[in-house]
Amino acid sequence: MHAQERIRPPAVAGMFYTGDPKALSAEVAGMLAGADRAGDLPRMPKALIVPHAGHIYSGPIAASAYALLAGAAQTIRRVVMFGPAHRVAVNGLALPEAEAFATPLGVVPLDLAAMRAAEVLPQVTISAAAHATEHSLEVQLPFLQAVLGDFKLVPFVVGHTGGHQIAEVIDLLWGGPETLIVISSDLSHYLPYAVARQKDGATTSSILHLQPLTEFEQACGALPINGLIEVAQRRGLKPTLLDLRNSGDTAGDRARVVGYAAFAFEEAGHA
């Protein structure tokens, strides 16, 4: 495999977010600057839940979480990310064959040692196809590149599995303050505005009370969210809701909306 083939190129640049590097950098910087910092946490978050629609729709909501990482570039060196499969059927959790992911802002190296360690688990597989066109992970990278700069990524596309199996992977790669866990998920899909607000409010309440989600209609990333909830229960993480909106609030009409929320999870005792 040649060096170029080991880099997974951007699949949704120019569709889900701006493909021009300068415009993308300015767009992300603007969303981070506009994020509501009134909810700043006393501790650096150990885990985030962030939405993954096009930046015009969910970018400001995701930015409310990533803005909390300002000043963490010297601390967070690894991001372990879980996003639901949208394009390719996956059994378990799929790692890529690549050694790096590229966006218009540059190349993010993968943590190959961590990936090899995770491969020992029976639910973890390798699938280039699962990652080739998947957007749920890619749309997060420009934000992480903006706030962290130099970091390594461990990207999982989540398919048919269970929350406990995902919790096992999270536990394995938990690490210390150098490791951030990111769960990529939208909430309800294509409901009328008022119905979506009600349903997303209930889903948000479940997450804040560390109660597992019971249906994919609540969140496309329900499984990785449930994996994080299991770990949060055991490790005493405290969740905080940072932003809750939908596409009718940002850039779409209100007849059929998609829900977006951002959460931060703090680890007790780590300032």
Rank of each mutant, 00 (worst) to 15 (best):
K152R: 14
F265D: 00
D20L: 06
A114Y: 01
P10Y: 07
V120Y: 01
P104S: 09
Q211M: 08
V120I: 08
I183Y: 02
F16N: 14
R6C: 04
P224K: 04
A94K: 11
P60D: 13
F156N: 14
G106K: 11
S58V: 07
M1Y: 08
I61F: 03
E168K: 11
L69I: 00
I7L: 11
G252R: 12
F82N: 07
A264D: 00
L180W: 00
V50D: 04
T179C: 04
A62S: 15
M81D: 09
G83P: 13
L141P: 10
T103H: 09
Q218W: 02
H52A: 12
P177N: 04
V182H: 01
Y57P: 06
A262E: 03
D186L: 13
P9G: 10
A261V: 01
H52Y: 08
F151L: 14
P21H: 10
A13L: 13
L48D: 00
N246G: 12
A23R: 10
R43P: 00
V158I: 15
S185F: 04
R256F: 14
L223C: 05
A33G: 04
L223F: 06
A89K: 08
A113T: 07
S58L: 07
D249I: 09
A255K: 15
A261K: 00
L210G: 02
E97T: 13
A255S: 15
M44Q: 06
V88R: 13
A222K: 04
R256N: 09
V231E: 12
S25H: 09
V50T: 14
L223G: 01
T240G: 03
A63F: 03
I7F: 03
H135I: 02
A114I: 02
G201Q: 11
P224F: 03
P239T: 08
L223H: 02
T204D: 02
A264F: 00
K238T: 14
H164D: 15
L93M: 15
G252C: 05
T18F: 02
V258K: 04
L228Y: 04
A47S: 06
K238S: 12
G149T: 11
A202D: 12
